[in-house]
Design a protein around this nucleic acid. Structure first.
Lengths: 160, 160
DNA sequence: CCGAGTCAGTTGGATTTTCCAACTAACCTG
DNA sequence: CAGGTTAGTTGGAAAATCCAACTGACTCGG
């Protein structure tokens, strides 16, 4: 039996970065979402464009669907075929893809030619991340740990 | 032999998102970088706080070091011990962690209490991503594919 | 100087994931 | 009806990960 009042000192940090990676950090998940962001919605094309094997892709799409990140929309009755579309949650993954693409195009350049990205205004991808509250730019190191939170709002009962 | 002038129609999309995931997308890599962002620099603590097994963590840290994302700094001569620190490249991963944390704290809330994040101004994490060029906010769908690029700058010779 | 503890890994073997090519099922097209 | 498209599923091999234990080089307390 375990004692619920004691803190497990060796437990990994339960934070929202780790929670997000549970869903988005599995192999191929972000690439599948990239495809949907770019307007590709069908299984075969997503498989081709990502390079994921079909069985794993099936698994990832189910996970993303179960977590509410994407939804399956039927586009054919008789052979019952579906398209995969981003939900609101899935569309909001965009900043992650944007940050990743920007980091990578700065730091991962090599001889191999790769597709770059740009903003819809036509400019090369160069995102700036601001704090919505104070308007200041997020600098490395300006990300700090906050309090523990769960669904009904911050739970002050649990010992910090 | 393959013909270099022909496009492989079935090849996965070579883009900077995929390239970034090569380095940052491996299991535990982003969590290790999270720890360094939060000021944790030693092997045992990183292992504990992430939950990664020690052998895999060793491998990830080596990969990140080889890719220039982190560096090993010696802090003890005689038992030859090292700390892991972010390079400039590693520090610039922050926007990815910030976007991920923000997405997750919006969409991944459940009963389990998790550490949240905040900006150094004290406010809850609420990042806004703007295009540095036009100043407009990045909306889902405003991320578009750009031209192919490699190291010496955009190579106009390759057939699009 | 002995035993315990810390730190940063390494090792071996079990377990889990992923890969891959082939297969199915249900249609459509010529 | 032969062939193609679409969205998977299957089975077995290969690769990645997990885990607990071990090593080596120290430090510290007594």
């Amino acid at each position: 039996m375990n004692r619920p009042t004691e803190k497990a000192v060796n437990a990994p940090r339960a934070c929202f970065i780790a929670a997000g990676l549970d869903v988005l950090g599995e192999r191929w998940a972000l690439l599948a979402l990239r495809e949907m962001s770019l307007g590709v919605h069908r299984f075969d094309q997503i498989a081709r464009n990502t390079g994921a094997s079909r069985d794993i892709l099936t698994d990832r799409l189910r996970t993303l669907e179960n977590r509410g990140v994407i939804e399956r929309l039927q586009y054919s009755e008789r052979p019952a075929r579906y398209e995969y579309h981003l939900t609101t949650s899935g569309a909001e993954v965009a900043p992650i893809l944007i940050s990743l693409a920007a980091w990578s195009s700065t730091w991962m350049r090599d001889e191999t030619p790769r597709a770059s990205y740009r903003h819809s205004c036509g400019a090369d991808l160069k995102p700036v991340v601001l704090c919505a509250e104070c308007g200041e730019e997020f600098t490395p190191g300006s990300l700090l740990l906050g309090p523990l939170v769960s669904s009904p709002g911050t739970d002050p009962a649990s010992g910090q």
